[in-house]
Structure formats: structure tokens, C-alpha cells
Simulated assay, not measured.
Amino acid sequence: MKGNILITGATGSLGKSVLNNLLKDFPSDKLSVLVRDDNKTTEFKNKGVTTFVGDYDNYNSLVSAFKTIDSLYFVSGSDIANRTKQHENVINAAKEAGVKHIVYTSFVRENETQNSPIATVAEAHLKTEKWLKNSGIDYTILKHTIYMDFIPMFLGEQMLDTGVAYLPAGDGKNSFVTRNDMAEVGAKILTSLEDHKNKEYDIINENTIGFKDIASQISEITGKQIQYVSPSQKEYIETLTKAGVPQEYIGVFAGFSEAFKQEEFIKTGTTIKALIGRKPTNIKEFLTQAYSKKQ
């Protein structure tokens, strides 16, 4: 039956959070998810949610799932090397299946050129936005800033032991938003699509912060002195290489660190409050939750 909403990436943190937000006041029999692994369908079926097995590489699986829905929450793929083609599959399958509205999770940015430190990451997003706008399908583009949830990953598991926050992000300030806040925004839009037809939103916080101040706040929260050290890109890459970090991860960490330094995520605004009726989670709240348990 048409009228359903389908969420891709439902086993991931963002997709699952969007689904859980929707289930608070939206009928489960109007919700569908796409999962890659048949072994991960049980939890969704137990919630009364229709489950389809498929992935962005399998075009026919996408068409089959999308034929049952009107609206799609399209979580951008995590396979950086292959996701441009994967995203093209999603858009084309949605067109073939007759999907009426797509909500796409893109990214906020300052630099759209090949000189961007995250140009490789950006490519699929930029192309997907263009494909969406030319598809004839109604769209809502959510330009997510950097996840606040990624801060502990960038600072490393050993930071509290070493007392050093080691990241080549310089003095750049950036806007961070929690994944849960982004999910709440997505769920709100999915239940009021007529108000968001063919619109783009910067999903950003009201304030910015740099990693030096982040380290200072973690020191205050944990009672452990944390020193922020911003090495050169060359030194950072060499250090991570010697530590045995896989090269693909080093490239991503280094690229995003340079993006932080260049303030690629500097935009601020009140979009989140306007959409969900409350201010986004602030950095102190998040860091307290993330690090108070690790003292």
C-alpha cells in the first residue's frame, strides 16, 4: 500500500534513530526499512515495520523496495570509493518506482571545488544533489554539519591516558550537531513533507568551537589535564602510520582535520530550533555525557 515512508541505512545509527523518532507518533505499518543483511531484520519486524533486504549496489532490490512507498529517507552511503554510482542507483530506482519525495542527507560546506580537503568525500554529495534536482521527484536536502558524535573518534581512545588531544585542526572553529538531533530533524520533516517540498536546510548548531576549547572542556569534565596539540599534516600522517592505523582511515582523518582547520563547517544558525522547537544539544552537554563515564 502506498503512503509509506522507507528509511535506508536503518541498521546504522542515523537511520535507526530516525526510525525510532518516527515510531513515537507515526504508525509502524506505514514505515519500511532497507537493510543489507537478512539476519538483521528481526528487530524491525518486531516493531511492526516492513523490512526489505537490499543495498545500493543492487538496483533491482531498490526498485522492488521503492515500489511500495511514497517517501524515501535516503541516508548517504558510507562506501566513499563506490557511493557515487550507488547514489545514482538510488535516484534512478526511485524514479522508476514512482517515489514522490526524497529526503537526502547531504553535507554543509564552504568549498565545493577540487581544492577542498574533503573533495573525495564531497563528490558523491554534490552529484547526488544535482541528480535529485533534475529527477522530477520532490526533494528535501538536509545539509548536515559534522557529527558531534565523531569528536571522540578524532581525538582518539588514548587521549585520557596520554593527556594529549592530537589533531592537525589548528585554531579552526566549526559547528557540531549530534546525530540524534539530526535524526529528530529528519523525522519531523518526514511527517510534514508538504512544508518542505524542494527545500534545502543547513543542519547546523548555533555556536562554533575549536579543538583547543574542546580539550579544555574535557579537562574540566574529567579533572584530567588535556593538552591540545596541532601537528603538521605530515607529522600527523607519519605518527598514525607508525601506530598502524590503516591508510584509508588516515586519509579521512587528515582530510577532515584540514577541513576543520579551514573551517569548512563554520556555518551557524537557528534552523534546528525552527524545525523541532528546541535548541540543538550544546557541546558541553555532549562532552559531559561522552567523557564523564571515562574518568
Rank of each mutant, 00 (worst) to 15 (best):
Q227I: 13
Q233P: 10
I218G: 11
D161M: 12
E96I: 04
G15Q: 09
S292P: 07
D25I: 03
P246H: 06
K130P: 07
K199C: 04
I250T: 07
H125P: 05
S76Y: 01
I221W: 03
K127H: 13
T51E: 05
K294M: 12
T113P: 04
L155D: 10
D161Y: 10
F253V: 06
G210F: 13
L34P: 05
N205K: 08
S216E: 13
G277W: 02
P231M: 01
S135M: 09
K130W: 00
E248W: 15
Y291Q: 02
S32G: 12
R83V: 13
E220R: 11
N205T: 11
G77V: 02
S219E: 09
I69C: 14
V75F: 04
T11M: 08
K273H: 12
L34M: 13
A10R: 10
T239G: 07
G156Q: 01
F150C: 11
P231E: 00
N60Y: 13
Y147K: 00
T68P: 05
V245M: 14
G15K: 04
N60T: 14
G210Q: 11
G244W: 12
T241I: 05
S13N: 15
Y291C: 12
M182F: 01
I5C: 02
A259K: 04
I5W: 01
H87K: 08
D181F: 00
G170F: 01
R179G: 14
K212F: 15
F253Y: 15
N115A: 15
V35K: 10
L19K: 08
I214W: 08
N198D: 12
D57G: 11
Q225R: 13
V53N: 06
T241G: 12
I80D: 10
D171Q: 14
P152Q: 01
L23H: 09
S106N: 09
S192P: 00
K2I: 10
K224P: 06
I137R: 06
E248I: 15
L132R: 10
T140M: 09
N115I: 10
P168A: 04
N39M: 07
E88M: 14
E194Q: 15
L287Y: 02
E88P: 04
K45E: 15
L190V: 06
L23G: 10
V33Y: 03
G98W: 08
S13Y: 11
T50S: 12
F256L: 08
D38K: 14
L23C: 02
A81W: 07
I91A: 03
A122D: 13
V63N: 05
T42R: 13
Y291W: 05
M159Y: 04
A97L: 08
G269T: 07
L6T: 07
V108S: 14
D181E: 09
K294Y: 12
P168W: 10
I5S: 02
E264A: 11
G269C: 03
I137C: 11
G3W: 10
F211V: 11
I189L: 04
T11W: 11
G3P: 13
T8D: 09
S32F: 07
D57R: 14
G223M: 00
I226Y: 09
M148A: 13
P117E: 00
D70H: 01
S61N: 12
S192L: 09
K143Y: 15
P27Q: 06
K197H: 00
